[in-house]
Design a protein around this nucleic acid. Structure first.
Lengths: 223, 223
DNA sequence: TTTTATAGTTAGACTAATCTAATAATTTAG
DNA sequence: CTAAATTATTAGATTAGTCTAACTATAAAA
């Protein structure tokens, strides 16, 4: 029972509704928020809401806020899945920088072929996170909870794995490279210095080293 | 002096005009031929011809046949380049069968990013032919002449090199492996038997062997 | 060389997506 | 709890691409 294929535009609206409503406590969003997000004007959004309501992808009443239906959410998650898998491809295989992958992935995510995505996922080795550290939904539309934390908020003594960064400036990335920290690096906090929240951490069998709060706030890890 | 980005549709028209006009002696084509090719009606084609003429991508006068301008041809060739590179990706990396790659490549060819294609080409190892044996234009829009022929249409006595197959069924590929023929194998036709067009061929220093017309029709060689 | 058949174009309408301007509902503040 | 400010919707136009139906060139045949 596959719905008729959605247009590029409809898909973009669903994605925008998803990402904004996930950020809100009530899992909904508004006409003007969407207009802002996708760089369009409110009347266009109103029109599209009517259309998406007919297709049962959102629940919406005039002058009220919108929510995705179960189907709508499913569709949105699958687009995000495609987007993130393509980002992994662009980064890992074509060696685009972190901050260059998004724009092209915005286009690639609308290619219609389920088989393509399954094969791409396999080719990439079933990655769990995209180059920004965001989780990749599974093919049945399940989004594993984002169990990431910053290094600064992690338990002392336990081992974690680096899955991304928040700050992707060159100066930070170069520093990471210099101390040999990358995606997948195992890290353990040995001690937290209460005075300035700096951390003594150990990486593999290297010498322990001390990093600032600013550093640990910008490194994302998972257990 | 890059022209404003063309739409998906405009690109498809240019590609269609290119492929049909290349097939004609006068390097032109007609409204109805294009309509047939891209599954649309002649009035739509007329409209688009007017539009493409304004953009100086074709030369066209009412009731006459169309030709691509130099720019139009350049654009068409770059789309074909993208199409064929994606086909190589789908075939070589994602292991789609050669007859499954076309449909998805039809979508991928419209992704706008020059950098993407340059990197993809590098990633694929600068392939010269797509999985159907068609040549891949270079990034400056040069299309090397297709100098490949089937083994069946080749001169007796001269040496050629195997560069691909038309039929990529398992049974054929296994047969090739069995007689030790692969990409790069040198082959020479010793004799053509007029009765059934079977060929006596020699491979390296092996014993000569006889192959059927069906076989030689499906082996692609270059001199 | 005139007629007929074929091919191509214009006219007018439709859909999807967008916009501006005008209007209406809802919220927020006084 | 009304009035102003905000937010959202409708109305009407626009652009890209498509269609059918009606008309017009051009080419082919008699």
């Amino acid at each position: 029972m596959k719905a008729t294929q959605l247009s590029f535009t409809e898909e973009n609206y669903l994605k925008a509704i998803y990402s904004l409503s996930e950020r809100s406590a009530s899992f909904d969003t508004s006409t003007s928020e969407i207009a802002e997000k996708i760089q369009t004007k409110p009347p266009s959004v109103s029109d599209m809401f009517r259309k998406l309501t007919e297709k049962k992808l959102i629940t919406y009443e005039k002058y009220k806020r919108v929510q995705l239906t179960k189907t709508g959410k499913q569709v949105a998650i699958l687009i995000i899945r495609k987007h993130r898998l393509w980002e992994v491809f662009l980064h890992d295989k074509l060696h685009f920088a972190w901050d260059e992958v998004h724009e092209v992935a915005e286009q690639l995510e609308h290619i219609h072929s389920e088989e393509l995505i399954l094969r791409l996922e396999k080719f990439l080795g079933y990655p769990k996170y995209d180059p920004h550290g965001d989780p990749i939904p599974s093919s049945n539309g399940e989004l594993r909870p984002n169990q990431r934390a910053t290094l600064s908020e992690v338990e002392v003594g336990r081992q974690y794995q680096v899955v991304g960064v928040k700050d992707s400036s060159n100066v930070f990335l170069q520093y990471l490279q210099q101390i040999n920290v990358g995606i997948g690096t195992k890290v353990r906090v040995i001690e937290r210095i209460a005075f300035d929240d700096s951390l003594k951490i150990s990486l593999k069998k290297d010498q322990p080293l001390t990093v600032s709060k600013k550093f640990s706030d910008n490194v994302l890890v998972t257990s």
